[in-house]
């Protein structure tokens, strides 16, 4: 099956492979007659050049045709000691290299909407202050990762709406083009239940099946066209 029809219906599709597969994926993308998908990376370093053994430069990724870089995933924060400062610096590094930072955000513990929203806003605000142009924030509460039940739609709607208001209130000083997607366990029907507050979804394991991706892209497209 192909997502061609669905994806071209106003939904942007991004594939973020491992570093080793990026070049092949961009080649494959460039073979297509239509721009069906964009290629992203799963991390980068915060400097364009320098002696940082083993790290990947955002400048280099841009040269390979990478359009997005995922930054600050909960796994990286937990297992590799990724700090908020690194997330800010990496986002700025992407931004200055014309790559759109795709920043993973979320509160640690479950709480009321305002408390969670304020905690997540602390992750968003410095990124807005240090980047220009397009940004994507992928929201997933940390407490919901791997939990038996995903975060409730009401909670997601509440926090994302709270963040959207805060972002809109910054428009005069931060004129970024900001999209907020939901980054948690996504399955069929999720995006519909979110009442159009999110600008899309960030898929993990569920998206490893092309048929699942097709379904989700169609759902996101249907919600967006309402």
């Amino acid at each position: 099956s192909t997502v061609a029809t669905a994806a071209l219906n106003h939904v942007e599709l991004v594939v973020m492979p491992d570093f080793l597969s990026i070049r092949e994926c961009t080649r494959l993308k460039n073979r297509l007659d239509e721009p069906l998908f964009n290629v992203g990376a799963q991390d980068c370093w915060q400097a364009d050049e320098g002696a940082f053994t083993g790290e990947v430069s955002p400048k280099h990724l841009a040269q390979l045709g990478v359009r997005y870089v995922e930054i600050g995933h909960a796994e990286r924060r937990k297992q590799f000691g990724e700090t908020n400062e690194w997330v800010i610096n990496k986002s700025a590094a992407c931004s200055r290299n014309s790559i759109i930072p795709w920043i993973c955000i979320g509160e640690i513990n479950k709480g009321d909407i305002e408390a969670c929203g304020d905690e997540v806003w602390e992750q968003i605000k410095p990124v807005l202050d240090n980047c220009t142009g397009q940004l994507v924030f992928a929201y997933e509460p940390v407490w919901a990762i791997g939990a038996p039940k995903p975060a409730e739609s009401d909670h997601i709607i509440g926090v994302v709406s709270y963040l959207r208001k805060k972002i809109d209130a910054e428009k005069e000083t931060n004129n970024n083009d900001v999209r907020i997607v939901y980054g948690g366990s996504a399955g069929p029907g999720l995006v519909e239940s979110l009442n159009g507050v999110v600008d899309g979804l960030f898929l993990g394991r569920f998206g490893h099946n092309p048929d699942n991706v097709k379904k989700v892209v169609e759902e996101v497209g249907a919600v967006a066209s309402k």
Binding site: V3, M16, D199, G200, L203
Partner: peptide, 29 residues
Amino acid sequence: TRQPVVAISLKMYFDPAKTLQFVSALAGI
């Protein structure tokens, strides 16, 4: 209006051939 976006982070593939197979299937190639 903001363009909706769906992204897939291919974290669980540790085989470049499998990754390419997935992307090819997605693209209908």
